[in-house]
């Protein structure tokens, strides 16, 4: 699809592809720890992929938008890897 998009449409940057991810943590504290840890690393191509995160109660919500499905998939999959790592670290070492 990307190959057929004219240059003008490219310049306008249609954020046609999006997805959401919600993760429930044991406590708001843990959700905030995950949020703070993952917010440090910005998206590598901010002109092509956007990631917005927020925390409410125990829930970490992540919203992705991208101009290509391929980029959305790549960003999402890389994010899930590090999110899983952060969650495992919290589970393993967060016991009071």
């Amino acid at each position: 699809m990307a190959a057929t998009v004219p240059a003008i449409a490219r310049a306008e940057q249609n954020w046609d592809f999006s997805c959401n991810l919600d993760v429930n943590f044991e406590s708001e504290e843990h959700a905030l720890i995950a949020y703070t840890s993952l917010a440090v690393d910005k998206e590598l191509q901010p002109d092509k992929v956007k990631r917005v995160m927020s925390v409410s109660n125990n829930k970490l919500s992540v919203h992705f938008e991208a101009i290509e499905a391929r980029l959305l998939r790549a960003s999402f999959s890389a994010f899930v890897d590090v999110l899983t790592l952060a969650t495992k670290t919290i589970q393993e070492f967060g016991q009071k």
Partner: peptide
């Protein structure tokens, strides 16, 4: 990532 989490915990 691990360091950021541990630093907070």
């Amino acid at each position: 990532i691990v360091v950021r989490v541990l630093s907070q915990l």
